[in-house]
Deep mutational scan, measured.
Amino acid sequence: QVATSTVRILGMTCQSCVKSIEDRISNLKGIISMKVSLEQGSATVKYVPSVVCLQQVCHQIGDMGFEASIAE
């Protein structure tokens, strides 16, 4: 089973930030795809909930120095 959710990301300033986040999160087990939008300050994450949760994704992004939260 696959889920798609949006994560809000604060602190991104350039495409390099976007690429860094996409590269790191895409390597997590259970992540199918991730598309980060600098303009919208968010990311669309396609993932397998039984393998990885959005809290883990937000935590990983937080470790990179950005502020991440699950969009309502």
Rank of each mutant, 00 (worst) to 15 (best):
C17M: 06
T44K: 12
Q60D: 10
E67S: 11
G62N: 15
C53H: 13
V2C: 15
K46A: 15
S20Q: 14
A68H: 03
K29G: 08
R8I: 12
H59E: 14
K29H: 12
T4H: 07
R8V: 12
R8T: 10
R8P: 06
T4Y: 09
T6N: 09
M12T: 04
T6F: 13
E67V: 14
T44D: 05
R24V: 09
I31G: 00
I61Y: 04
E67C: 07
V52M: 06
A68L: 06
C17G: 04
T6A: 05
L28E: 03
K35I: 08
G30W: 06
S50N: 07
C58F: 09
E39F: 09
V51L: 14
G65Y: 06
G11T: 00
V18A: 15
G65W: 05
Q56I: 11
G41D: 06
D23R: 12
K35Q: 10
Q60R: 07
N27C: 06
C58W: 06
A68D: 03
C58D: 04
V51M: 14
T4R: 07
K29C: 09
V48A: 08
E72K: 09
K46T: 15
H59Q: 15
K46D: 05
S26N: 13
N27F: 09
R24E: 12
R24Y: 07
T13A: 06
N27T: 11
L38C: 06
A3E: 13
R8M: 12
V18Q: 05
D23A: 10
G11K: 01
Q55R: 10
D23N: 12
I32R: 00
E39Y: 08
V2P: 06
V45Y: 00
M64L: 13
E67I: 12
H59G: 12
Q55K: 10
V45I: 12
V52L: 08
L10M: 13
S69Q: 10
D23F: 09
V7W: 01
D63R: 11
G65D: 02
R24K: 14
I21V: 05
Q15W: 08
I21P: 02
S20T: 13
A3Y: 15
D63V: 14
H59V: 14
V7E: 04
S42Y: 10
Q60V: 15
V45F: 04
Q15S: 10
C14G: 06
I21T: 01
E39K: 08
I9G: 02
S42F: 10
S16P: 04
Q60P: 02
T4P: 02
V51T: 05
C17D: 15
D63N: 12
P49Q: 06
C53I: 08
C14Q: 02
K19F: 08
T44G: 04
S50D: 15
Q55F: 11
K46R: 06
E22P: 01
A71S: 12
E22C: 06
G30F: 08
S5F: 05
F66M: 03
E22V: 09
L54F: 03
T13K: 14
C17Y: 05
I32S: 00
V18P: 12
E72R: 09
I61F: 04
G41Q: 15
N27H: 13
K35R: 10
L28N: 02
L28S: 03
S37N: 13
E72W: 08
S37Q: 07
E22T: 09
E39H: 11
G65E: 03
I70S: 06
A3K: 09
V7P: 00
V52E: 01
V52I: 15
N27D: 10
E72D: 12
C53R: 11
G11W: 05
D23G: 07
F66R: 03
E39A: 10
I31A: 00
C14E: 05
S20P: 03
V36I: 13
V7N: 01
L38R: 04
S69M: 11
V36N: 00
Q56H: 13
A68C: 15
K35C: 07
A43R: 02
I61D: 02
T44V: 13
S33L: 07
S5A: 14
G41M: 11
A71W: 13
G30C: 09
L10K: 14
V36Y: 00
E72C: 08
A71E: 12
I32A: 00
T44P: 00
E22D: 01
T6G: 05
S69D: 06
V2N: 05
G62V: 15
V45K: 01
I9T: 00
L28F: 05
S37I: 07
A71H: 07
Q15A: 11
